[in-house]
Nucleic acid binder design. Structure first.
Lengths: 231, 231
DNA sequence: GTACGGCTGATTGCATCCAATCTCAAGCCT
DNA sequence: AGGCTTGAGATTGGATGCAATCAGCCGTAC
């Protein structure tokens, strides 16, 4: 029984996005922690869960493999990718260079209202205290909103992809931050907003680069959250 | 007759890499100009060409869509992606920031022999005159060799992917270079080698960044090689 | 003469089916 | 007793078949 009952969500209309729905579902599970790194991905499971056959499931798995979220071993199966500390630092170094570039595309196009919304987000982040989940949600919302005006294609996609790759580990290390480290992050957010308000794109880029760089250096102090093998 | 005769290349062993072979083949065709931007990709064609069924073909198409090389429209088909000038400049700005980073990973690990080989490559590039094909091949070999010692994963893959994305257009605009522009590129290659010889990674990064930046600015002078639509 | 609706062939999206391979544990040999 | 072999079950890789959709063409109505 791999097909969904036609009564549930229409006459199984063939809109050609089955693979995309499935990929989105798996991706969401990896990002929100439901599927932790190392957990097995079974084609049949997914087919049943999404009311599809294994063909679109395999397309979704292939896509996620190329996004780096899944590791596929021929004839054996697929697992949620694990990351070493070195790999994670590599991602952060890429973000350190790419996100300021993306911000430089977005900043001149942000409206005053959008910058106001960013200021409010920065305030709310400062109020999260030691609620890690709230911080993670708002932090992601803040940075993505700051990039929202960029009319780029590949760069936007890539930055999202890099965020997703480290998502499974972000919760672990953010929860290890000291109150001081958190306070610095909050201040950096406000500094970014201030630079955007001043329409000083270069300064915004500089602060953002430092923000990511500082996070990377803190990351190196919590090596225990990464897999020990495959180093 | 979509399956290959078992006598040709063995008993159709199921090594789980059919999709990879097919993707490599399409990718090669796009890079070498056999499949120009905008050309149609037919699943059945590829299945017949590679002696496979459409299932692995579809997985390959998904991968290439994700790489940005193909554009897929549900229920309609797949085409080799076309690029606007703005998109191409975006890619070059990403390369401007990422390739120096990759070089900074590679440079300290390059052996003296490898740097010697780079010097020889730089010399041969200087000798290509106005032979665009020879220049393109050697230029790619030079840059990739300069990155060869980097022990990075995502960054290496990404840089290769960005090169591939602009490959269909590189021939067009390189052939439009003036002798002067070519000479400057040759000199930059030699400057990179010199910096690597000096073990001055920062200088090598700086020259490489300028090299890519200069290329991007020349690119903007030949907008006619890009598709006019989808701007 | 032009616009609209239906038909046909080509192509894609997906389900189903079978074979190859892996996992893992039980049994055999040394 | 311990290592190697072997079988069954689970799982993946790939082929085939069918329905949905699309592009292009023709005929008809106005």
């Amino acid at each position: 029984m791999t097909t969904a009952p036609p009564t549930l969500d229409g006459p199984r209309s063939r809109d050609g996005d089955a693979h995309a729905r499935i990929a989105d579902g798996i991706r969401r599970g990896i990002i929100d922690g439901t599927r932790p790194p190392g957990s097995r991905i079974l084609q049949e499971d997914l087919a049943a869960r999404y009311g599809a056959s294994r063909v679109p499931v395999r397309e979704a798995i292939r896509q996620l493999e190329y996004e780096g979220l899944l590791t596929v071993v021929p004839n054996a199966g697929a697992w949620v990718s694990t990351m070493t500390l070195a790999e994670c630092e590599e991602i952060y170094r890429m973000r350190e260079r790419l996100e300021p570039l993306l911000l430089s595309y977005s900043a001149p196009r942000l409206t005053d209202d959008e910058i106001g919304a960013l200021a409010e987000l920065a305030d709310r982040i400062s109020d999260t205290g030691d609620d890690t989940d709230a911080f993670l949600d708002l932090d992601a919302a803040f940075h993505h909103a700051s990039y929202a005006a960029a009319e780029t294609t590949h760069l936007t996609d890539l930055v999202v992809r890099l965020w997703n790759l480290t998502a499974p580990y972000r919760r672990s290390y953010v929860s290890s931050w000291t109150p001081d480290a958190r306070r610095i992050a909050h201040e950096e957010h406000h500094l970014i907003v201030a630079a955007l308000r001043d329409r000083d794109t270069e300064e915004a880029e500089r602060v953002l680069g430092g923000h990511i760089r500082r996070t990377r250096r803190q990351l190196a102090r919590t090596p225990e959250i990464f897999s020990l093998s495959a180093g």
